[in-house]
């Protein structure tokens, strides 16, 4: 099914959705949002593209097999949990690193929680896309 309106708006929407998904991912630590919802939004972008163009086009635009992204995401999430071991704390205890922190300020906070969220983002993103692509190809 080819629709001019859908194809044109999709071009705009895909970029917007992808940026928004990263925004949702990053604000997720203290505010509503996070890896899960970010991954869903990101996946929506590619699903929209798959509907507007075709599954093959969407898969080509993605370049990587979505199943690999999902599994890698699980790996990233697991490693972020393991990082607590370096500080000799129980599994999954959050580890924080404050880059360029002036005294009193937080600088740029980098945490294992963030990496866990990125892992979740990848797992959800990849998992949903694997599923949708498979179903689309099947039917």
């Amino acid at each position: 099914m080819q629709s001019l309106i859908l194809t044109t708006t999709t071009r705009l929407l895909v970029a917007l959705l992808l940026v928004f998904s990263v925004y949702a991912l990053l604000r997720g630590h203290n505010l509503p949002g996070g890896g899960f919802i970010g991954g869903l939004i990101g996946a929506t972008a590619f699903i929209l593209y798959a509907i507007a163009a075709s599954v093959e086009d969407a898969a080509r635009a993605l370049k990587v097999d979505p199943a690999n992204i999902a599994m890698l995401g699980v790996g990233v999430a697991g490693l972020s949990g393991l990082s607590a071991g370096l500080a000799n704390q129980p599994f999954f205890t959050g580890q924080w690193l404050f880059l360029f922190a002036e005294d009193g300020g937080k600088g740029i906070p980098i945490s294992s929680v963030l990496f866990f969220d990125i892992g979740v983002y990848m797992a959800v993103f990849g998992g949903i896309l694997t599923l949708v692509f498979a179903l689309e190809r099947e039917i």
């Binding site: 998992g127 599923l131 179903l135």
Partner: peptide, 17 residues
């Protein structure tokens, strides 16, 4: 919901196959 979604999507694909 998330787990249920995954399982049911799998089942739907399985029924279709």
């Amino acid at each position: 919901i998330v787990i249920g979604f995954g399982l049911l999507a799998f089942t739907l694909a399985l029924v279709y196959r």
